[in-house]
Nucleic acid binder design. Sequence first.
DNA 1: CCTTCCTCTGTAAACGTTTTCATTTTTTAT
DNA 2: ATAAAAAATGAAAACGTTTACAGAGGAAGG
Lengths: 344, 344
Amino acid sequence: MHEKIATIEDVARHAGVSIATVSRALHKPNVVSQSTREKVQSAIAATGYTANVMARNLRLNRSGMILLLVPDIGNPFFSAILSGIEQGASKAGYNVLIGDTQNDPDREATYAAYLRSNQADAMILLNGRLPAPLANSPAKASPPVVIACERIPGCGLPTVIIDNEQAAFDATTHLIDHGHTRIANVAGPGNNILTVDRTAGYRRALTENGIGIDPALTFVGDYSIDSGIAAGRALLADPKTRPTGLFCASDGMAIGVIVAAKELGLRVPQDVSVFGFDDIHLAAAYDPPLTTVRQPRRRLGERAIALLLDRLDPTTPNKPAQPGPVIVPTELIIRQSTGPCPKS
Amino acid sequence: MHEKIATIEDVARHAGVSIATVSRALHKPNVVSQSTREKVQSAIAATGYTANVMARNLRLNRSGMILLLVPDIGNPFFSAILSGIEQGASKAGYNVLIGDTQNDPDREATYAAYLRSNQADAMILLNGRLPAPLANSPAKASPPVVIACERIPGCGLPTVIIDNEQAAFDATTHLIDHGHTRIANVAGPGNNILTVDRTAGYRRALTENGIGIDPALTFVGDYSIDSGIAAGRALLADPKTRPTGLFCASDGMAIGVIVAAKELGLRVPQDVSVFGFDDIHLAAAYDPPLTTVRQPRRRLGERAIALLLDRLDPTTPNKPAQPGPVIVPTELIIRQSTGPCPKS
DNA sequence: CCTTCCTCTGTAAACGTTTTCATTTTTTAT
DNA sequence: ATAAAAAATGAAAACGTTTACAGAGGAAGG
């Protein structure tokens, strides 16, 4: 008894009207008479009709789907961003299709093709790289695309990011203000735009305060805890060259550095100050509670989806693209992993 | 110059064949002659044709979409599970549509309706509750549904979970084996099935070892760090009644308990032992490194999607449903937050 | 009473595929 | 060479909608 699903035709028959009328009763209620509208309503109730979205979308040439390209969905960093995006999209009647690219250009290209084949109406890029199919086509390409998190220099697409350079500058300046002068930079991978920007902010802070830049004080990690541990061991082992403050490009690395510091018998913040980045959920509960840069991740997602919906809105078809990127503000969260520079 | 997108008809015209042949050349290459196949190939290349998935799906009456119901996508706990699911789905040519229900039954119902309206071919439930539309319909309902993480008692649907009862039993037993007899249970919300099972395991361990169950040693939290802190303060404040071991139903609460313990000047594990649950990413880097139950979250997702794909596979249409739930094994990770019971 | 203009409804054409069925062409067997 | 079988192709229907167009019926205005 696998009951066949009701189509619009069943409803029409049941109500004794044409399918056109049923469709109109649903989408332009004001153009159909009161009495038939009621007949249709009850016919729908009686048949348990649900519109076949696929057919509808085919006819309307849309998908109601927003494609979200993420480098790694397994990375908890993205969850709050996703949440912000999903909520905004859902409110506007869109669904979110998550494309986990695993940093594979092939997968990026595959997903980006969804735009052309009408499987998605728009796309949000969190992965800091333009998929191949888009790289060539004109920037103002029809299906709206928004960049979030990792800006893509020179791509001309609407973008929402935090000001990584300024945040790093502020963090480093905070250390300088507390008397530190030997300040290390525990950075992410060199080709990553976040690292580029954060390192630039770190350098500017040093330079503006008349502190020379010592290349030996930069450690290139990969944002992971383990690379933070490696950084800590490398930078803190030798008391002669040991920095008193470390600016880390992620909380994960900051935690790693602290683990290494404890290994070496150093106290945080009495002996070394460690500055993180992100304000992950556990930052406040760590020992010591982490001083860090709070990234408003949910807000980031919300702004990204808002920007996108704005471009999707048929009532404002070609509003001029925002000139610069949208910057969502960060916040320095001063906890106990940083303190004044110890007297040497 | 917004060039129209190429349809199968354009390809057919370009290749001088019928659209039927083009379709066949794509999907049943062996039934079309070598020469025409080549003509079609180059016509596709020339026109830049990409099949309109919507039209295809309408015709085939499928969506290629797997709906994933999550209570809160913003919760990092799910990210690894998502990753496992997405990877398996993607490999099988399915897309994953994430439905963030925010624990709202209305939203659950809305998403579940996607199954009926052909917007999704199948569904995975991570939210521990059957959406209303499904609750009434026969369990063997046509569109495949799989439950993961939180079992739904008596629903008869294929399920993949960890053995929460056994894991809690093992963890508690570990504490008992180290001489602890006053062991607290820092639980989750009472109506949560995970809590029910874990508390049952905790109790069984005590009972089987002849230790009475003291209701004052159970604290009901909500898996959060803050509720862990509250638990720690409540349970550890009074030296008279203080437990020497605490089994916590999440790493978050375990960390909270440790924070509270440090506040009170207690050392972990010398004064109190704290056992967590989940093995979150930061567990190993915490101070002290957390003893915990490792939940193989990615594996959980992988098994769930495998189970689902199995039921979706047209070649094995109605393989009998697995009698019991699939249990993915957990692992006790003994680190330094637990130790022998202190001499009193 | 006849026109004109609404308001409401139905017919039929799209949307881009896949697939059944019939037809044509090629191969094989006699 | 011819008949039969096999292989390759095309015409057209179907999937479930939305919507342009036109027709039917009344009301309003003359």
